[in-house]
């Protein structure tokens, strides 16, 4: 296997800027996953994410039954029977939070992947085709960047029929622009490299150049963009649902907070009704940020060495 791989790595090395020594650049691309696992920050982040993913998967086992079933145990504080207490409607908060993990993570990651995909297509097309297409796409990107995000979100959600699909669609529409700008900048700089010019001269098809020549060389930027978009997706979904603009029948962290606000949990002092869901959102966002930070450090040697010199 390693023998077969040699020509590939050789070309990859020649693509790298001359400042990196060939020996150092090889593992950077090959073992991003392994190097992530070796990084303390990334490990903590990934572990935290795994815990949440597991909680979401096992939610029906850990908390069987319908979590939003209304019972007559109104707003009891945490106890042995209900570890995180119950809401004003008598629902178990732990069960709601566990079940909410599913929708929140699902929507967050879907939005993240979709927004990154749109941003990637726009960025690659902008960089490869250049000229008029680039000007036009840049203009559209900048307009989307400048329009105030949340009000736009509210307007779109108000006109579209409520539901999870709407939430995903609306968040993708409002979330792609920032990433597109970053990816375009990266793709444009790679577009100017000699090996892309060589590929053009050899007569490779445009799609192949975009996805097989340019894309692999910006994998790390795509990765950090993706993580950023997922963070955005989870936070924005919660915000939208907190405003009551999502699908109120679905159990998610955002709707949990919406109902906590609606049932007056703040005024009656029922802190346990709104603390767990908010904490969960923050922890997931923090975990993603940790992984993001580690990816940045691993793939950008300059950042790493500066950090080392500092400590």
């Amino acid at each position: 296997m390693p023998v077969l791989d040699t020509p590939d790595t050789a070309t990859a090395v020649s693509h790298d800027p001359p400042t990196r020594s060939p020996g150092a650049s090889r593992p950077a691309r090959r073992g991003l996953g392994r190097r992530l696992l070796a990084d303390r920050k990334a490990r903590a982040g990934l572990l935290l994410l795994a815990v949440f993913a597991l909680a979401g998967l096992l939610a029906p086992v850990l908390a069987p039954g319908d979590p939003s079933l209304i019972t007559d145990l109104g707003a009891t504080p945490p106890s042995a029977d209900h570890w995180l207490g119950t809401t004003a409607k008598g629902q178990d908060v732990l069960a709601l939070t566990l079940r909410g993990t599913r929708s929140s993570l699902l929507v967050g990651f879907t939005v993240g992947i979709a927004a990154t995909l749109v941003a990637l297509l726009v960025g690659l097309a902008s960089a490869y085709l250049g000229k008029l297409v680039d000007d036009l796409l840049t203009l559209v990107t900048n307009v989307f960047l400048l329009l105030p995000g949340l009000p736009l979100l509210v307007i779109l959600a108000a006109f579209l029929p409520p539901g999870t699909t709407t939430v995903v669609l609306v968040l993708t529409i409002t979330g792609w622009a920032g990433s597109a700008r970053v990816l375009r900048a990266q793709a444009t700089s790679i577009r100017g490299k000699d090996f892309v010019a060589a590929a053009v001269v050899t007569g490779e098809r445009p799609l192949r150049i975009m996805f097989r020549e340019i894309l692999p060389n910006m994998a790390s930027v795509v990765m950090t963009t993706l993580l950023g978009c997922v963070i955005f997706g989870i936070g924005a979904q919660a915000g939208l649902e907190f405003l009551g603009l999502g699908d109120a029948s679905v159990v998610s962290w955002g709707t949990n907070l919406y109902w906590a606000g609606n049932d007056g949990a703040l005024m009656t002092g029922a802190w346990w009704a709104f603390v767990p869901s908010g904490l969960a959102i923050a922890l997931v966002a923090f975990a993603l940020a940790l992984v993001n930070y580690a990816v940045d450090e691993i793939t950008n040697p300059r950042l790493r060495s500066r950090r080392r010199r500092k400590s």
Binding site: G235, G239, G278, I281, F286
Partner: peptide, 9 residues
């Protein structure tokens, strides 16, 4: 990394 509105709450 906490949601805006959650800190407000």
């Amino acid at each position: 990394s906490f949601p805006y509105f959650w800190l407000a709450m």
